[in-house]
Write a protein that binds this DNA or RNA. Structure first.
Ligand code: SF4
Ligand code: SF4
Lengths: 162, 162
DNA sequence: ATTATTATGGATACCAGATATCCATAATAA
DNA sequence: TTATTATGGATATCTGGTATCCATAATAAT
Protein backbone atom coordinates (compact mmCIF):
# COMPACT_ATOMS: atom_id res chain seq x y z
CA UNK A 1 0.00 0.00 0.00
CA UNK A 2 1.42 3.34 -1.04
CA UNK A 3 0.18 6.85 -1.53
CA UNK A 4 0.25 7.57 -5.24
CA UNK A 5 2.77 9.90 -6.77
CA UNK A 6 -0.13 12.06 -7.84
CA UNK A 7 -0.78 12.92 -4.23
CA UNK A 8 2.87 13.76 -3.85
CA UNK A 9 2.82 16.05 -6.84
CA UNK A 10 -0.45 17.64 -5.83
CA UNK A 11 0.82 18.53 -2.38
CA UNK A 12 4.04 19.97 -3.73
CA UNK A 13 2.19 21.94 -6.37
CA UNK A 14 -0.10 23.46 -3.77
CA UNK A 15 2.86 24.41 -1.60
CA UNK A 16 4.42 26.12 -4.56
CA UNK A 17 1.23 27.99 -5.29
CA UNK A 18 1.10 29.04 -1.68
CA UNK A 19 4.62 30.32 -1.84
CA UNK A 20 3.79 32.31 -4.98
CA UNK A 21 1.05 34.47 -3.56
CA UNK A 22 2.21 37.33 -5.75
CA UNK A 23 0.41 39.38 -8.36
CA UNK A 24 -1.04 36.65 -10.47
CA UNK A 25 -1.33 33.06 -11.58
CA UNK A 26 1.42 30.54 -12.08
CA UNK A 27 1.33 28.50 -15.26
CA UNK A 28 1.80 24.80 -15.75
CA UNK A 29 5.18 25.52 -17.28
CA UNK A 30 6.65 27.08 -14.14
CA UNK A 31 4.97 24.47 -11.98
CA UNK A 32 6.34 21.68 -14.10
CA UNK A 33 9.77 23.24 -13.97
CA UNK A 34 10.12 23.62 -10.23
CA UNK A 35 8.59 20.24 -9.45
CA UNK A 36 10.52 18.39 -12.11
CA UNK A 37 7.43 16.67 -13.50
CA UNK A 38 6.22 16.63 -17.08
CA UNK A 39 3.65 19.25 -18.01
CA UNK A 40 1.25 16.73 -19.50
CA UNK A 41 1.04 14.67 -16.36
CA UNK A 42 0.91 17.57 -13.99
CA UNK A 43 -1.95 19.04 -16.00
CA UNK A 44 -4.12 16.10 -15.17
CA UNK A 45 -3.43 16.53 -11.51
CA UNK A 46 -4.14 20.23 -11.52
CA UNK A 47 -7.37 19.58 -13.38
CA UNK A 48 -8.49 17.23 -10.66
CA UNK A 49 -7.67 19.80 -8.01
CA UNK A 50 -9.67 22.35 -9.92
CA UNK A 51 -12.69 20.09 -10.33
CA UNK A 52 -12.68 19.72 -6.59
CA UNK A 53 -12.50 23.43 -5.98
CA UNK A 54 -9.07 23.45 -4.43
CA UNK A 55 -7.44 25.61 -7.09
CA UNK A 56 -8.77 28.05 -9.63
CA UNK A 57 -7.57 27.90 -13.23
CA UNK A 58 -7.67 30.44 -15.98
CA UNK A 59 -6.63 29.74 -19.57
CA UNK A 60 -5.16 32.20 -21.99
CA UNK A 61 -2.26 34.62 -21.86
CA UNK A 62 -0.85 35.05 -18.37
CA UNK A 63 -3.24 32.38 -17.22
CA UNK A 64 -2.44 29.60 -14.81
CA UNK A 65 -3.42 28.38 -11.39
CA UNK A 66 -3.94 29.88 -7.96
CA UNK A 67 -5.29 28.59 -4.68
CA UNK A 68 -9.07 28.77 -4.65
CA UNK A 69 -9.11 29.58 -0.94
CA UNK A 70 -6.60 30.61 1.72
CA UNK A 71 -3.86 28.08 2.39
CA UNK A 72 -5.02 27.62 5.98
CA UNK A 73 -8.30 26.31 4.64
CA UNK A 74 -6.75 23.62 2.49
CA UNK A 75 -6.04 20.55 4.56
CA UNK A 76 -3.93 17.57 3.67
CA UNK A 77 -7.08 15.56 4.06
CA UNK A 78 -8.76 17.52 1.28
CA UNK A 79 -5.90 16.79 -1.06
CA UNK A 80 -5.62 13.13 -0.18
CA UNK A 81 -9.33 12.64 -0.66
CA UNK A 82 -9.23 14.15 -4.12
CA UNK A 83 -6.18 12.32 -5.34
CA UNK A 84 -6.64 8.93 -3.73
CA UNK A 85 -10.37 8.72 -4.15
CA UNK A 86 -13.02 8.34 -1.48
CA UNK A 87 -13.36 4.59 -1.08
CA UNK A 88 -12.30 3.24 2.27
CA UNK A 89 -8.82 1.77 2.55
CA UNK A 90 -10.05 -1.60 3.71
CA UNK A 91 -12.87 -3.48 2.06
CA UNK A 92 -13.72 -6.95 3.29
CA UNK A 93 -14.17 -9.37 0.40
CA UNK A 94 -15.45 -12.20 2.56
CA UNK A 95 -18.96 -10.98 3.21
CA UNK A 96 -20.36 -13.96 1.33
CA UNK A 97 -18.05 -16.53 2.88
CA UNK A 98 -18.94 -19.17 5.41
CA UNK A 99 -16.81 -17.38 7.95
CA UNK A 100 -18.89 -14.27 7.72
CA UNK A 101 -21.95 -16.28 8.64
CA UNK A 102 -20.08 -17.68 11.61
CA UNK A 103 -18.95 -14.30 12.84
CA UNK A 104 -21.95 -12.17 12.11
CA UNK A 105 -24.95 -14.25 12.94
CA UNK A 106 -27.61 -11.64 12.39
CA UNK A 107 -30.06 -12.49 9.65
CA UNK A 108 -30.03 -10.20 6.64
CA UNK A 109 -31.19 -6.94 8.10
CA UNK A 110 -33.70 -4.58 6.51
CA UNK A 111 -32.25 -2.02 4.16
CA UNK A 112 -32.49 0.71 6.76
CA UNK A 113 -30.09 -1.19 8.99
CA UNK A 114 -27.54 -1.74 6.27
CA UNK A 115 -25.42 1.31 7.10
CA UNK A 116 -25.20 0.35 10.75
CA UNK A 117 -24.28 -3.19 9.83
CA UNK A 118 -21.30 -2.08 7.82
CA UNK A 119 -19.88 -0.31 10.83
CA UNK A 120 -20.47 -3.36 12.99
CA UNK A 121 -18.61 -5.59 10.60
CA UNK A 122 -15.96 -7.00 12.89
CA UNK A 123 -12.67 -6.65 11.08
CA UNK A 124 -13.70 -3.81 8.85
CA UNK A 125 -14.74 -1.85 11.89
CA UNK A 126 -11.21 -1.95 13.27
CA UNK A 127 -9.57 -1.07 9.98
CA UNK A 128 -12.05 1.70 9.39
CA UNK A 129 -11.34 3.27 12.75
CA UNK A 130 -7.62 3.10 12.09
CA UNK A 131 -8.14 4.86 8.81
CA UNK A 132 -10.12 7.56 10.57
CA UNK A 133 -7.28 8.11 13.01
CA UNK A 134 -5.03 8.98 10.12
CA UNK A 135 -7.61 11.16 8.44
CA UNK A 136 -8.35 13.06 11.61
CA UNK A 137 -4.72 14.04 11.82
CA UNK A 138 -4.61 15.01 8.15
CA UNK A 139 -7.65 17.19 8.65
CA UNK A 140 -5.68 19.27 11.12
CA UNK A 141 -2.71 19.76 8.82
CA UNK A 142 -3.01 22.53 6.27
CA UNK A 143 -0.91 23.79 3.41
CA UNK A 144 -0.39 26.92 5.44
CA UNK A 145 1.28 25.01 8.24
CA UNK A 146 3.83 23.73 5.75
CA UNK A 147 4.38 27.21 4.38
CA UNK A 148 4.98 28.53 7.89
CA UNK A 149 7.50 25.84 8.55
CA UNK A 150 9.25 26.50 5.24
CA UNK A 151 9.50 30.22 5.88
CA UNK A 152 10.67 29.73 9.44
CA UNK A 153 13.35 27.37 8.23
CA UNK A 154 14.43 29.74 5.53
CA UNK A 155 14.66 32.54 8.07
CA UNK A 156 16.73 30.61 10.57
CA UNK A 157 18.99 29.67 7.71
CA UNK A 158 19.58 33.32 6.96
CA UNK A 159 20.46 33.89 10.59
CA UNK A 160 23.03 31.13 10.54
CA UNK A 161 24.85 32.78 7.68
CA UNK A 162 25.59 35.87 9.75
CA UNK B 1 -4.62 3.50 -2.14
CA UNK B 2 -6.09 0.30 -0.83
CA UNK B 3 -5.14 -2.40 1.60
CA UNK B 4 -4.40 -5.54 -0.37
CA UNK B 5 -6.71 -8.51 -0.33
CA UNK B 6 -3.86 -10.48 1.18
CA UNK B 7 -4.17 -8.45 4.35
CA UNK B 8 -7.86 -9.13 4.34
CA UNK B 9 -7.35 -12.87 3.97
CA UNK B 10 -4.58 -12.92 6.56
CA UNK B 11 -6.72 -11.22 9.19
CA UNK B 12 -9.65 -13.50 8.54
CA UNK B 13 -7.43 -16.55 8.62
CA UNK B 14 -6.00 -15.55 11.98
CA UNK B 15 -9.45 -14.98 13.40
CA UNK B 16 -10.44 -18.43 12.26
CA UNK B 17 -7.35 -19.91 13.88
CA UNK B 18 -8.17 -18.05 17.06
CA UNK B 19 -11.70 -19.43 17.04
CA UNK B 20 -10.36 -22.96 16.55
CA UNK B 21 -8.26 -23.19 19.69
CA UNK B 22 -9.13 -26.83 19.98
CA UNK B 23 -6.93 -29.90 20.17
CA UNK B 24 -4.75 -29.33 17.16
CA UNK B 25 -3.88 -27.64 13.93
CA UNK B 26 -6.17 -26.52 11.16
CA UNK B 27 -5.14 -27.36 7.63
CA UNK B 28 -5.09 -25.18 4.56
CA UNK B 29 -8.08 -27.11 3.27
CA UNK B 30 -10.38 -26.12 6.09
CA UNK B 31 -9.04 -22.60 6.06
CA UNK B 32 -9.59 -22.29 2.34
CA UNK B 33 -13.08 -23.65 2.74
CA UNK B 34 -14.33 -21.29 5.40
CA UNK B 35 -12.72 -18.24 3.86
CA UNK B 36 -13.75 -19.00 0.32
CA UNK B 37 -10.28 -18.50 -1.10
CA UNK B 38 -8.26 -20.91 -3.21
CA UNK B 39 -5.82 -23.12 -1.35
CA UNK B 40 -2.89 -22.18 -3.55
CA UNK B 41 -3.21 -18.50 -2.90
CA UNK B 42 -3.95 -18.80 0.77
CA UNK B 43 -0.86 -20.96 1.15
CA UNK B 44 1.34 -18.09 0.11
CA UNK B 45 -0.25 -15.86 2.70
CA UNK B 46 0.09 -18.40 5.47
CA UNK B 47 3.72 -18.92 4.56
CA UNK B 48 4.39 -15.24 4.97
CA UNK B 49 2.70 -15.24 8.34
CA UNK B 50 4.84 -18.16 9.36
CA UNK B 51 8.08 -16.57 8.20
CA UNK B 52 7.23 -13.66 10.43
CA UNK B 53 6.54 -15.83 13.43
CA UNK B 54 2.84 -15.11 13.66
CA UNK B 55 1.68 -18.65 13.03
CA UNK B 56 3.32 -22.01 13.39
CA UNK B 57 3.05 -24.59 10.61
CA UNK B 58 3.56 -28.30 10.63
CA UNK B 59 3.45 -30.50 7.52
CA UNK B 60 2.38 -34.09 7.37
CA UNK B 61 -0.68 -35.96 8.48
CA UNK B 62 -2.92 -33.90 10.74
CA UNK B 63 -0.62 -30.99 10.17
CA UNK B 64 -1.70 -27.43 9.59
CA UNK B 65 -1.45 -24.04 11.21
CA UNK B 66 -1.91 -22.61 14.67
CA UNK B 67 -1.26 -19.25 16.26
CA UNK B 68 2.37 -18.94 17.29
CA UNK B 69 1.43 -16.89 20.32
CA UNK B 70 -1.74 -15.97 22.25
CA UNK B 71 -4.28 -14.01 20.25
CA UNK B 72 -3.97 -11.05 22.58
CA UNK B 73 -0.34 -10.73 21.53
CA UNK B 74 -1.07 -10.55 17.82
CA UNK B 75 -1.93 -7.02 16.86
CA UNK B 76 -3.48 -5.78 13.65
CA UNK B 77 -0.32 -3.78 13.24
CA UNK B 78 1.76 -6.94 13.17
CA UNK B 79 -0.36 -8.40 10.41
CA UNK B 80 -0.49 -5.24 8.34
CA UNK B 81 3.26 -4.85 8.54
CA UNK B 82 3.84 -8.38 7.29
CA UNK B 83 1.37 -8.28 4.46
CA UNK B 84 1.76 -4.73 3.23
CA UNK B 85 5.49 -4.48 3.72
CA UNK B 86 7.46 -2.07 5.82
CA UNK B 87 8.09 0.89 3.54
CA UNK B 88 6.40 4.11 4.57
CA UNK B 89 3.12 4.97 2.89
CA UNK B 90 4.36 8.28 1.57
CA UNK B 91 7.67 8.69 -0.17
CA UNK B 92 8.56 12.09 -1.61
CA UNK B 93 9.89 11.76 -5.12
CA UNK B 94 10.94 15.39 -5.39
CA UNK B 95 14.04 15.35 -3.27
CA UNK B 96 16.18 16.23 -6.30
CA UNK B 97 13.82 18.88 -7.64
CA UNK B 98 14.34 22.60 -7.61
CA UNK B 99 11.49 22.94 -5.17
CA UNK B 100 13.24 20.82 -2.64
CA UNK B 101 16.20 23.18 -2.70
CA UNK B 102 13.82 26.07 -2.16
CA UNK B 103 12.09 24.45 0.78
CA UNK B 104 14.91 22.75 2.53
CA UNK B 105 17.82 25.10 2.33
CA UNK B 106 20.22 23.20 4.50
CA UNK B 107 23.34 22.03 2.72
CA UNK B 108 23.80 18.26 2.47
CA UNK B 109 24.19 17.22 6.07
CA UNK B 110 26.75 14.74 7.35
CA UNK B 111 25.71 11.12 7.28
CA UNK B 112 24.97 11.08 10.99
CA UNK B 113 22.29 13.70 10.52
CA UNK B 114 20.59 11.87 7.70
CA UNK B 115 17.98 10.16 9.84
CA UNK B 116 16.94 13.39 11.49
CA UNK B 117 16.71 15.11 8.14
CA UNK B 118 14.25 12.61 6.83
CA UNK B 119 11.89 13.46 9.63
CA UNK B 120 12.38 17.15 8.99
CA UNK B 121 11.38 16.79 5.39
CA UNK B 122 8.43 19.15 5.26
CA UNK B 123 5.66 17.28 3.51
CA UNK B 124 6.90 13.82 4.30
CA UNK B 125 6.96 14.69 7.96
CA UNK B 126 3.25 15.41 7.97
CA UNK B 127 2.37 12.31 6.02
CA UNK B 128 4.61 10.18 8.17
CA UNK B 129 2.95 11.40 11.35
CA UNK B 130 -0.45 10.68 9.90
CA UNK B 131 0.64 7.16 9.08
CA UNK B 132 1.87 6.72 12.64
CA UNK B 133 -1.52 7.77 13.97
CA UNK B 134 -3.08 4.90 12.12
CA UNK B 135 -0.41 2.43 13.17
CA UNK B 136 -0.65 3.43 16.79
CA UNK B 137 -4.31 2.53 16.75
CA UNK B 138 -3.63 -0.75 14.97
CA UNK B 139 -1.04 -1.62 17.59
CA UNK B 140 -3.75 -1.52 20.23
CA UNK B 141 -6.11 -3.78 18.34
CA UNK B 142 -5.49 -7.48 18.69
CA UNK B 143 -6.94 -10.60 17.17
CA UNK B 144 -8.26 -11.41 20.62
CA UNK B 145 -10.34 -8.24 20.73
CA UNK B 146 -12.08 -9.39 17.56
CA UNK B 147 -12.63 -12.83 19.01
CA UNK B 148 -14.17 -11.34 22.12
CA UNK B 149 -16.50 -9.24 20.05
CA UNK B 150 -17.48 -12.20 17.90
CA UNK B 151 -18.24 -14.39 20.91
CA UNK B 152 -20.17 -11.63 22.64
CA UNK B 153 -22.23 -11.12 19.54
CA UNK B 154 -22.87 -14.81 19.19
CA UNK B 155 -23.99 -14.97 22.81
CA UNK B 156 -26.36 -12.06 22.61
CA UNK B 157 -27.79 -13.66 19.50
CA UNK B 158 -28.54 -16.80 21.46
CA UNK B 159 -30.32 -14.71 24.04
CA UNK B 160 -32.52 -13.10 21.45
CA UNK B 161 -33.75 -16.47 20.32
CA UNK B 162 -35.25 -17.23 23.71
C1' DA C 1 -12.35 40.36 -34.08
C1' DT C 2 -7.92 38.21 -34.22
C1' DT C 3 -4.18 36.04 -32.27
C1' DA C 4 -1.28 34.03 -29.10
C1' DT C 5 -1.40 31.55 -25.07
C1' DT C 6 -2.87 28.40 -21.75
C1' DA C 7 -5.81 24.84 -19.61
C1' DT C 8 -8.81 20.70 -20.66
C1' DG C 9 -9.92 16.09 -21.51
C1' DG C 10 -10.02 12.01 -24.45
C1' DA C 11 -7.21 8.34 -26.29
C1' DT C 12 -3.59 5.55 -25.71
C1' DA C 13 0.67 3.20 -24.25
C1' DC C 14 3.35 1.25 -20.72
C1' DC C 15 4.73 -0.74 -16.52
C1' DA C 16 4.70 -2.56 -11.83
C1' DG C 17 2.53 -4.79 -8.43
C1' DA C 18 -1.37 -7.46 -6.87
C1' DT C 19 -3.89 -11.53 -7.67
C1' DA C 20 -4.04 -16.20 -8.79
C1' DT C 21 -2.79 -21.01 -10.17
C1' DC C 22 0.21 -25.08 -10.98
C1' DC C 23 3.48 -28.30 -9.68
C1' DA C 24 7.66 -30.40 -7.99
C1' DT C 25 9.78 -30.87 -3.55
C1' DA C 26 10.51 -31.11 1.41
C1' DA C 27 9.00 -32.21 5.86
C1' DT C 28 6.39 -34.64 9.14
C1' DA C 29 3.29 -37.90 11.58
C1' DA C 30 1.20 -42.22 11.45
C1' DT D 1 7.50 -46.61 4.34
C1' DT D 2 3.56 -44.14 3.15
C1' DA D 3 0.12 -40.81 3.11
C1' DT D 4 -0.46 -36.19 4.00
C1' DT D 5 0.45 -31.49 4.27
C1' DA D 6 3.15 -27.23 3.83
C1' DT D 7 6.68 -24.82 0.86
C1' DG D 8 8.43 -22.12 -2.74
C1' DG D 9 9.61 -21.36 -7.56
C1' DA D 10 7.67 -20.42 -12.04
C1' DT D 11 4.28 -18.45 -14.44
C1' DA D 12 0.00 -16.21 -16.12
C1' DT D 13 -3.34 -12.61 -15.77
C1' DC D 14 -5.49 -8.54 -14.27
C1' DT D 15 -5.63 -3.96 -12.47
C1' DG D 16 -4.48 0.54 -11.51
C1' DG D 17 -0.91 3.98 -11.55
C1' DT D 18 2.14 6.47 -14.43
C1' DA D 19 2.98 8.96 -18.47
C1' DT D 20 2.58 11.14 -23.09
C1' DC D 21 0.25 13.08 -27.24
C1' DC D 22 -2.90 15.91 -29.39
C1' DA D 23 -7.14 18.14 -30.74
C1' DT D 24 -10.16 21.42 -28.61
C1' DA D 25 -11.95 25.06 -25.66
C1' DA D 26 -11.40 29.15 -23.14
C1' DT D 27 -9.34 33.44 -22.14
C1' DA D 28 -6.52 37.75 -22.21
C1' DA D 29 -4.03 40.92 -24.84
C1' DT D 30 -3.71 43.42 -29.05
S1 SF4 E 1 -17.75 -9.70 9.84
FE1 SF4 E 1 -17.06 -8.17 8.34
S2 SF4 E 1 -14.86 -8.47 8.22
FE2 SF4 E 1 -15.72 -10.34 9.16
S3 SF4 E 1 -16.15 -11.73 7.40
FE3 SF4 E 1 -18.01 -10.60 7.79
S4 SF4 E 1 -17.88 -8.86 6.33
FE4 SF4 E 1 -15.76 -9.67 6.56
S1 SF4 F 1 11.19 19.04 1.75
FE1 SF4 F 1 10.73 16.82 1.68
S2 SF4 F 1 8.64 16.74 0.86
FE2 SF4 F 1 9.45 18.77 0.35
S3 SF4 F 1 10.41 18.56 -1.71
FE3 SF4 F 1 12.03 18.22 -0.20
S4 SF4 F 1 12.07 15.96 0.02
FE4 SF4 F 1 10.04 16.48 -0.90
Amino acid sequence: MQFSKSTDYALHALVHLGLSERSSNVGIKELSGTLGVSESYLSKIMSKLRQDGIVRAVPGVNGGYELARPAEQISFFDVVQVMEGRQQLFKCSNSRSQQHRLLDEEESAPESQRELDRKECLIEKVMYSAEQQMYQYLREQTIQSVLDEALKRRFSHEMNKK
